[in-house]
Every structure is written in structure tokens, then in C-alpha cells.
Design a protein around this nucleic acid. Structure first.
Lengths: 124, 124
DNA sequence: CAGAATCCAAAACGATACTG
DNA sequence: CAGTATCGTTTTGGATTCTG
């Protein structure tokens, strides 16, 4: 969600459909993927970035912050000399697992559709 | 997907993660909701629009066309005096049901989280 | 009714440079 | 390492008008 402070117009009418609510929360371009990788356990920022080819530092930061603001992701800062930040799913964030797993399965099947060389990326 | 013809740069690297593929296909602001309503059977354009408060005619058209281009939605035009167009899910589009249902359930639960007045919209 | 077309505002996104 | 800041581009989306 991360309310845009509604400057003058409603971002969306009191969205009637729960599906819309979900889209608002995990609809970002990289949110679902980030959550997917966090399902494997806590990850450092650079770790996530490496696992998400194509995402820029800026976008990853922004999307993670929104997820944090919506209570799905926890951000743990370790005050060290080379800074270390670990992201992990909150209990609420964990409840997204069914959705993300379904998206993973569907995406894989959709590719096989005409790519006849099915392959997954079962990471740790 | 609806490839942007990649003018000079890759919209995304041969996206490694299947989740990214799914996001590319149903990641639009209104796509998931539209698909949800189409799970209830074929719907006319105006019907969909009425069920999706906040969507503009233009956006609904655009998103439906993309879904059509990606093979998820079928568009049937009835050559009548007052034009009638019915949208329905293709077999492939139907395979999205698990995802959309999961999104529906999650969105509803997410709202109850602090809205203590749970309500669904079980349409036809 | 179901759109296509045009115009324009706002949001998303990318590249780059700088910092504790 | 993990950002933040700034700038410019691209995409998205809305309002409105016109049409078969």
C-alpha cells in the first residue's frame, strides 16, 4: 500500500476487491521476486541484488522499503564497519508464500509453453 | 509479456526467475482483478468496467488487449447494432485461477488485519 | 456499446555520482 | 556494503473527444 498521501486525487477508490488490495501491496515490479528469494531465509542486500538480475540498487532499495512499510519485510541493520543489512520476511510476509509459489509454478509452466526446455532455479 | 520491441536496451535480462515472468504477464494494475472477474464466466466490456470501480475505459481496454495478446483472454465481438464484446478466459488464462484465488484470500485477510469487519464479494 | 485518438500529468524506472 | 541524491527518460494513467 504505502499511501501516497493522496495529494489531490484518490489513488484508488476504497478498492472494492480484495484482489486489488493484494496488487497494491505486492504489485511492484520486483516485490514478488524479492519475497520469493526471502522465502529461502534472510538475505543481505547485495545477496538479493545478485539473485535479481536487472534490478537496480535504487529500485531494490525502494521496493524493499515499501515492503517494510507494509509490514511484510523486516530490515535488520548490523552496525559494522562494512555495513551489513539483512532482510527477512515478517510473519505477515510469510503468509504470501502460497501466492508467490503459485506464481513461480505458473511462470515456469508458461515458459515451457513454447520453450520446450523446462528449467527451474531451486536455490537454497 | 507483450514484448516492447526492445528499441535499444533489454526490458529485462532473459529474466532468470519464473516469478518475474508471471509478474510480466499479470503484473498490470488491473490485470489480476480483470482475470478474477472473468473467473465468473464471460463478461461484457461494460460489465467488467462496472465491476472494477476506478478503472478507466482506456485502461481496461489496454489491459484486456495485453491479456489477449498473451493468450490469457479471448475477445469475442458480436457484430450487432449496439456493439457487444464479450471477454472470457482461455484455457491458459484459466490456469491462473490458483494465483488469483490466493490473491483474493490474502487481500481479504490483509484487510481484516486492522479493519475488523471482514467482507467478501462473492459474485456470480 | 465499445472502443480509438489525442493530449497531458504523474509515477515508475534507470544511470550515474556521492557518502557513512 | 548499502545506501542516498539528482537527473532524465520511459511508462502509466486519466480526461476528454470522436466514431462505427
Amino acid at each position: 500500500m504505502t499511501a501516497p498521501a493522496s495529494p489531490s486525487l484518490p489513488t484508488s477508490p476504497p478498492h472494492s476487491c480484495p484482489v486489488t488490495t493484494t496488487v497494491a501491496v505486492i504489485g511492484g515490479k520486483w516485490k514478488a521476486v524479492a519475497i520469493y528469494h526471502l522465502l529461502g531465509g534472510p538475505r543481505r542486500f547485495s545477496d538479493l541484488q545478485r539473485r535479481m538480475p536487472g534490478v537496480t540498487q535504487r529500485m531494490l532499495t525502494l521496493q524493499l522499503r515499501e515492503l517494510e512499510a507494509d509490514g511484510l519485510v523486516h530490515r535488520e541493520v548490523y552496525p559494522q564497519v562494512p555495513p551489513k543489512v539483512e532482510y527477512s520476511l515478517t510473519p505477515l510476509g510469510l503468509t504470501l508464500e502460497p501466492i508467490v509459489r503459485a506464481m513461480l509454478a505458473w511462470g515456469a509452466a508458461y515458459r515451457e509453453r513454447d520453450t520446450q526446455s523446462g528449467q527451474s532455479d531451486p536455490d537454497a
